[in-house]
Design a protein around this nucleic acid. Structure first.
Lengths: 206, 206
DNA sequence: GTCTATAATATGATAGAC
DNA sequence: GTCTATCATATTATAGAC
C-alpha cells in the first residue's frame, strides 16, 4: 500500500514535469509558427518525447495549444488590475505602462502567441475577451474617467488610452523583427521604456 | 498575323484579370488564416478557378503569397514618405497619423497579412525591412529631429514616435476582434481618429 | 488555358507491444 | 507510460487529355 501510493505520487510528479516540458516547448513552437504552422512533431522533438507520448498527455494538438494559451491569460490581466483610483494618476499609469512593457520584453513568445490568436479572429479565447478582459477594461476605464472628472489628468478617452498602451508596449515584442531591422540592433529596454512613457503619458499631465 | 496578335493581347488581358482575381482571393485567405493556414484550394474556390489552373499562373503556393505580400509594401511606405520638413510639424504628423489609420481601417486584411508576416519573423520581407523601410525611417527621423532642434515640437525620440504611430494605428486593424469584444461594437472611425491623434500628438506641442 | 485524375508528401492521430 | 509502426487525411504539386 505505501509503495503503491509512492508510485502514484511519483507518476503524478512525472506527469506534471512532462506537462510543463510540453507547454514550454509548445509556447516556443506556436509563438514562432502559429497554430497551423506548428506541428506536434516539432513540439515532441523539442522536449524529447515521442509524438504518441506527447499525445498521451494531451489528446489533441488543439488541447496543447489551448493549454499554453490559457496559461498566459492570467498574467495578461495582472498589471492593469493594479491600477488604483486612489493613487496618483501619473504614477499609476507610469507603473502600468512599465509593467506591461517589461512583461512583453521578458516574455515575447507569450505576447506573440496572444497576438497571433487575436489576429486570426481569437477562435479560442472569445469568452476571455468578452468576459474577464472586457469587464476589467470597463472597471479601469471608470477609474481613468474619475481622474479626468477630478481634473487630475487631461481629458482622454479611457478605452482608446488603454488600447494605445497595449498597442505600443506589445509592439516591441510582436514586431521585434521589424524594430531590430530598423534600429539595426535590439533596442535598449531602458531607453524604450522612457520613450514609451513620454509618448503615451506626457500629454495627460493636467 | 493581326488575329494572332489580337489573340495574344486577349490572352494577356485574361491573364492579368485572373492574376488580379487570384491576388484578391489570396489576400482574403492568407490574412484570415496565415500562410500555413491558408490553402491554394480555398483561394482557387474563392476566385472560381481550379487548383491546377491557379498553379498555372503561380507555380507554387509561396509565389502567390509573396506576390500578394509585395503588392501591399508600396502602399505601406506611402504615407510616411509625405512627411515634409518644411510643413508645420503638428499638421504634418496629424496628416500622417490620419492617413495611416485610414489605410489600416480601409484595408485591414493587408494590415493583418503584414502583421502576421512580421510576427513570424518576416522570412519573406527581410530585404524590405532592412532596405527601403529602414532608409525611409532614417530619413524621416532626421526630419523630426530637425523640428525638435528648431523647437517646433517637444523633444522626442523619432524612431520610437514612428513605432508608436504604427503600433496604435495598426492595432485597430490587426486586433479588431479584441477591440470590438471590449467596445461591444465596431468603433466609430471618426472618434477613433480624434482619440488616436490626441493621444499620440498632444504631448508634442512645443 | 483549363480541366480531371493522381502522385508525393506532411501531419494529426491511433493500435498494440512492452 | 512509452515506444514502433501505421493509418487516415489534408494539401501541395504534377501529368496528361482536351
Amino acid at each position: 500500500m505505501p509503495q503503491s501510493t509512492a508510485k502514484i505520487v511519483q507518476k503524478t510528479r512525472i506527469q506534471h514535469q512532462n506537462q510543463a516540458l510540453i507547454l514550454k516547448a509548445a509556447l516556443e513552437v506556436f509563438s514562432a509558427f502559429g497554430y497551423r504552422g506548428g506541428t506536434i512533431d516539432q513540439i515532441a522533438k523539442k522536449c524529447g518525447l515521442s509524438k504518441p507520448n506527447l499525445l498521451y498527455y494531451f489528446k489533441r494538438k488543439e488541447d496543447v495549444y489551448v493549454a499554453v494559451l490559457e496559461a498566459t491569460l492570467a498574467e495578461w490581466l495582472e498589471p492593469l488590475r493594479g491600477l488604483d483610483v486612489n493613487g496618483d494618476p501619473i504614477v499609476e499609469l507610469t507603473r502600468y505602462v512599465s509593467e506591461k512593457l517589461e512583461i512583453s520584453l521578458k516574455n515575447p513568445q507569450a505576447s506573440k502567441l496572444f497576438a497571433n490568436e487575436i489576429l486570426h479572429g481569437a477562435p479560442h479565447i472569445q469568452k476571455f475577451l468578452k468576459g474577464p478582459l472586457r469587464d476589467l477594461v470597463e472597471e479601469k476605464s471608470a477609474v481613468i474617467l474619475e481622474w479626468v472628472a477630478q481634473k487630475k489628468i487631461a481629458p482622454v478617452d479611457p478605452q482608446h488610452l488603454i488600447f494605445a498602451i497595449w498597442a505600443v508596449t506589445q509592439h516591441y515584442a510582436d514586431f521585434s523583427v521589424q524594430v531590430e531591422a530598423i534600429m539595426g540592433s535590439e533596442p535598449k529596454p531602458d531607453r524604450t521604456r522612457k520613450a514609451v512613457i513620454e509618448l503615451l503619458l506626457r500629454g495627460l499631465r493636467a
